[in-house]
């Protein structure tokens, strides 16, 4: 059993940084009070230890996870990191300690407190990214397909493959305004970037007409006599609406 230590690990907020923090903990068999990103504005009541990010060590730790716990566990850990779960770092650490003992089967242990919250968070991320595969609606700006989204989780890494396959020859850009990230596809290049903001150029000519056609289709397809606003809301929560063409009045929304 690891000794619980009254110490907080500080890492640089990156995934490799987290890998190094987790390695440090498992390697020294010490369970910190918490693992936090340096820029999180938390008041620490415990002494802190700064973790140095070492890409090589991060890679070999991931290789260790892969070999000991299987690829599903590694993917689960990556997705846990991209989720919006509070204190996800320490939860990932606790999960990995259990995974070290139980191997790949750990993913079946939903009844365990070190698994369930993380499992729910990962499911939330995966569901949200599945929804957004559909809800991302582009508008053409200077020949580039541009969309803005406001997800809860960091979905762009999960969306990249889908959109790059579907629109392989198109230039497109998806801006995640929650996490200040941009997915850019300018064939054959694809990049995932951190940004401070995105300035949109105006919509191309004819774009409003196509949007009007879509809005007309959306309004027409509804069968009156079957309205079920509660069902619609549960399948497509309101927070996504403001980014979707069918809910923007002509000439409103991001121009």
């Amino acid at each position: 059993m690891a000794t619980g230590e009254q110490i907080v690990y500080l890492y640089d907020g990156s995934f490799p940084g987290l890998m190094c923090a987790l390695y440090e903990s498992l390697h020294r068999n010490c369970l910190p009070e918490d693992v936090c990103s340096e820029d999180s504005a938390v008041l620490y009541l415990y002494p802190t230890q700064r973790i140095i990010t070492d890409e090589g060590q991060a890679r070999s730790f991931q290789k260790w996870i892969l070999e000991h716990c299987g690829s599903d566990v590694l993917t689960f850990v990556r997705h846990g990191f991209l989720s919006c779960l509070a204190r996800r770092e320490i939860r990932i650490l606790r999960f990995l300690r259990l995974a070290r003992e139980r191997g790949p089967r750990v993913l079946d242990m939903l009844q365990h407190d070190d698994v369930l919250p993380l499992h729910r968070a990962v499911l939330h991320l995966r569901r949200e990214s599945h929804l957004l595969k559909g809800f991302v609606h582009f508008s053409l700006r200077q020949g580039v397909l541009v969309a803005t989204i406001g997800p809860r989780n960091q979905v762009l890494p999960l969306l990249a493959e889908h959109f790059c396959t579907r629109f392989s020859a198109e230039r497109f850009l998806i801006h995640d305004s929650t996490n200040n990230m941009v997915l850019m596809h300018d064939p054959p290049r694809t990049e995932l970037l951190s940004v401070t903001g995105v300035e949109l150029s105006a919509k191309d000519q004819g774009e409003e007409d196509i949007e009007a056609l879509w809005r007309l289709f959306y309004d027409t397809i509804d069968v009156s006599g079957r309205e079920n606003p509660r069902l619609r809301m549960s399948l497509m929560p309101k927070r996504y609406w403001s980014f979707m063409t069918e809910f923007q009045e002509q000439g409103t929304g991001p121009r």
């Binding site: 609606h137 509804d222 079957r226 619609r232």
Partner: peptide, 21 residues
């Protein structure tokens, strides 16, 4: 251009709660 996903994708939901795909 294009792809198909076996799980199906909804691009919106109509006021009656049905998937628009």
């Amino acid at each position: 251009i294009g792809s198909a996903a076996s799980c199906g994708i909804c691009h919106s939901f109509a006021a009656d709660g049905r998937c628009i795909s």
